[in-house]
Design a binder for these strands. Structure first.
Lengths: 153, 153
DNA sequence: ATGTATTTGCAAGAGATTGTCAATACCCTA
DNA sequence: TAGGGTATTGACAATCTCTTGCAAATACAT
């Protein structure tokens, strides 16, 4: 796993905006950096990992940190399943990827596309927006769920 | 506004799955069809419009109907602002579009791209998924918000 | 017209996320 | 490198969106 942000790089980015580097923020970023390619965590997932590591970080701080890092463009916020968000490192090409999600069972497949990245960058630039993340999300029904006929569906 | 789904077409689609056409569902679909291009509603927005029209439809039914229509591929579920989803008609090419969203103020710009639609269709097909919707969401910071220095940001 | 399964409305509930506030701890400056 | 101003944390309450259980109402196939 590539270490995109060292603690000092994170500190520099935070301080530039009048914010501070705390042990909590450092640990949370580190956890995401050690995550296997394509893995993503919900706030609850992350909190449980922290507990397992004997890191006593409150759930509030977890939520606050996730939001902060996402707004900084360091994490990306994913809407893969119903009910809660997932987060993963926002990596540049060629690690940048998109998601194909089954709306029934939430099974997710990742795929890459440089053309999409280009479209996103171009659009943002055209309107003077500062790009943070661009993600194509495909909502679909997976082969298994197409076969199953669950009532209520 | 093009009337993509007549009441009878909606009824046919519902009945094919053992579901029923109710006045509530018909009115809700109609509201989306009469919405100006690019407009989208949250559950709460929709409910207030119904109240304004003297249509006494409960908020529960609004939520249930939105979910149903989205799962049928008639509506698309958008994640544009924090905290709640928005819905709009899921229209085909050339009305199909994507969103550039400011993560600070939620200001949203729409744009079209046929190449993205192609990427989405291709990916879904490759894995045998039945495509419902594909949307590129670009998270960025708009020019105004780049200038303003709101504390906490 | 009738039977039955679906749907609705209401109220209660679930679960994710945020707000409050005192205590703590970064980080800048002297 | 000590001190002070201010961002941040943790605990917990509150909020907010969305879901669900249940009884009554109602599509729709026959």
């Amino acid at each position: 796993m590539v270490n995109l942000y060292s603690a000092s790089a994170l500190k520099a980015e935070l301080n530039a905006k009048g914010w501070r580097l705390t042990p909590q923020r450092e640990i949370i970023l580190q956890i995401f950096q050690e995550l296997p390619q394509g893995d993503h965590l919900s706030a609850e997932d992350l909190h449980q990992r922290l507990v397992a590591l004997d890191q006593d970080i409150s759930l509030s701080t977890v939520y606050r940190t996730l939001k902060l890092l996402a707004r900084m463009g360091i994490l990306r916020q994913l809407e893969l399943a119903e009910g809660h968000k997932h987060y993963e490192l926002n990596q540049p090409h060629p690690y940048h990827h998109h998601h194909l999600v089954c709306v029934k069972c939430s099974k997710t497949i990742e795929f890459k596309s440089t053309s999409i990245l280009n479209v996103g960058a171009k659009q943002a630039q055209e309107y003077g927006y500062k790009l943070l993340d661009c993600q194509l999300t495909i909502h679909a029904i997976c082969p298994e769920c197409q076969r199953s006929l669950i009532p209520g569906w």
